[in-house]
Design a protein around this nucleic acid. Sequence first.
DNA 1: ATTAGCACTCGGGGTCAATGAGTGCTAATG
DNA 2: CATTAGCACTCATTGACCCCGAGTGCTAAT
Lengths: 345, 345
Amino acid sequence: MELSERKKRLLAAIVERYIATGEPVGSKTLVDALGLSVSSATIRNEMAELSALGYLEQPHTSAGRIPSDAGYRYYVDYLMGRYELPPNEKRLIDAKLEPAAGDARKVLENAGHILAEMTHCAAVSTTPADEAAVVRRVELVPIGVRTAMIVMLTSSGLLKSRICKTLSELTVDMAESFYNIVNANFIGKPAAAMTVAKIQTLAVSLGEKSLSMTPLLVALADVAAMTERTELLLEGQSNLLGYREYEQNAYELIEFLRRAEAMDRVFSEHPSSENGNLHVLIGEENLFRELQNSSMIFGKYAIAGHESGTLGLVGPTRIDYARLIPSLRYITEIVGKILSENVEE
Amino acid sequence: MELSERKKRLLAAIVERYIATGEPVGSKTLVDALGLSVSSATIRNEMAELSALGYLEQPHTSAGRIPSDAGYRYYVDYLMGRYELPPNEKRLIDAKLEPAAGDARKVLENAGHILAEMTHCAAVSTTPADEAAVVRRVELVPIGVRTAMIVMLTSSGLLKSRICKTLSELTVDMAESFYNIVNANFIGKPAAAMTVAKIQTLAVSLGEKSLSMTPLLVALADVAAMTERTELLLEGQSNLLGYREYEQNAYELIEFLRRAEAMDRVFSEHPSSENGNLHVLIGEENLFRELQNSSMIFGKYAIAGHESGTLGLVGPTRIDYARLIPSLRYITEIVGKILSENVEE
DNA sequence: ATTAGCACTCGGGGTCAATGAGTGCTAATG
DNA sequence: CATTAGCACTCATTGACCCCGAGTGCTAAT
């Protein structure tokens, strides 16, 4: 559907003005704002046509127009200026993320922070996970007489650790058994294979040693489970409270965003991507009722080439797409880059 | 100020009813609810006196009474039933906290979760810290050719770790130097001594080795800093949105609760405690304006006998003190117990 | 000390009219 | 045929007004 140049110009102006002010835009305002040399009546005719095409709607007869979901969609796809993030904002982001480099979760927390701050939206993210990863290394670090730390590294560069208390004193013998079991059964295999069931059969085969080894093996299974289970991080929930559109129902939306299974479904329903690897879901384009008067932008970050997690923004449909998209794109890129640093080979 | 038995009974009934319904309580309702054998006029006289004493206030002349801050205070101090948490709730709490035992942060996250869920308030907590702690153990765990993990254990049982990348390959020689430096300079001394400045002087004294060792030492200083820096966790922010009293200004309160320095000041302004080690701050008793139409209950949990962090609840002044106080008390106790498990000797 | 009775207060809800921003339509214009 | 001036129309918002009812405080009687 090709619109006339003037219609495009008007639609863009209406979207941008509505994004900025949050108030319906009238024909008169528009003429003034654009400095057009035609009368408001002409603009009214154009606006009526844009309404008929479904790009604009009216809250009520005597109000101005606001963009419909389709209107935003047209704006995002064809009209929006594609602009590059200014260097000082890039530096700000880098400075916030770099220092956390050692800790993946922290990197994502910081990314959420700065996204929320820059965009006044809620920022969601998932910690990295990679189901295809295999166990590359397991270490048992003695911490005390009966306490040890189990550290596990996967091929995708994820590092997880956990404290573990043993029933009896931790001996060199036990450590040796532990490494033997790990090397024989788990190294080079998927972390997912390290199930509690598997651990139990192993424990049985250990005979008398089993009793003392069990806590170590249980903890090991637990660490393995951690590499698969992603965590959902949510930042800037309170930003949503500032928008008129959420005056009544912020609660429902926020509760939805906090539910990990729900968000996982949202993210996985849209596996591939078009817009420079970001997804833009506007209003009713969202599959979940709770999101249908919001817009969501999200993308995957890649660790060493593998898509490992998601970063996203949620706000009212009236968000500044032109600004948010480049911001989010840059941050997903940098997050991927930083998290890839810890992966070797 | 000793009140007559009937006044006490009335005040308690008004507080409890207002907590339950959120609506001002009138004399008639009160007579019915308590099944009193006196008329509403008598109760009105009593209520007028309670108002004069400052325990009740009226939103407007033709409405019932609601408790003032002083009214809640009297209720909490003298009238409130002190009841023990039912065993099934205790079990629920235990079941939620036990599995996280290996990870202090996770324990506190879960504690916040369950508190928020049980109380419909916002739950705040701080991760454990202990400025007096000395470094008990440091481990350098090789993870890859140029990647290592530094693990540090303090006398108070805190365990922190961090990934670290070196510039050149990680050699046995480097590891040896590292352990030498650590043993000679840090073990048995306060973690606070491991400053960047100190690290720098050490690096200088290393001469040519300095270049390769610096990343390790910097990471070490970072881990040391982590043992001191507490994190502020906030759960159940969205619970606040459900209360009428926060319809307008939830944003300001939530933003306040998220600010770590602010909350640290709140917690440290009230170092010692009376009410079975919990603090109860009602409305204007709070020193910070942002909290003055809220109530806050908080207490410290102790790891191996040392107060290490704080757990707290924030809600409107109209919260169910009688129920929340035992819940929070039990959870602080259990959190302390679980976190103490990792401390040896 | 308690109570019945009553006048009084005041917020909430409903109706009503005025206001004004913005529209759609029509007829005139170049 | 696109543009425009003009105008009637719509409808949310606002403020004035009134009524209702819950709840009060006071007084005089018990």
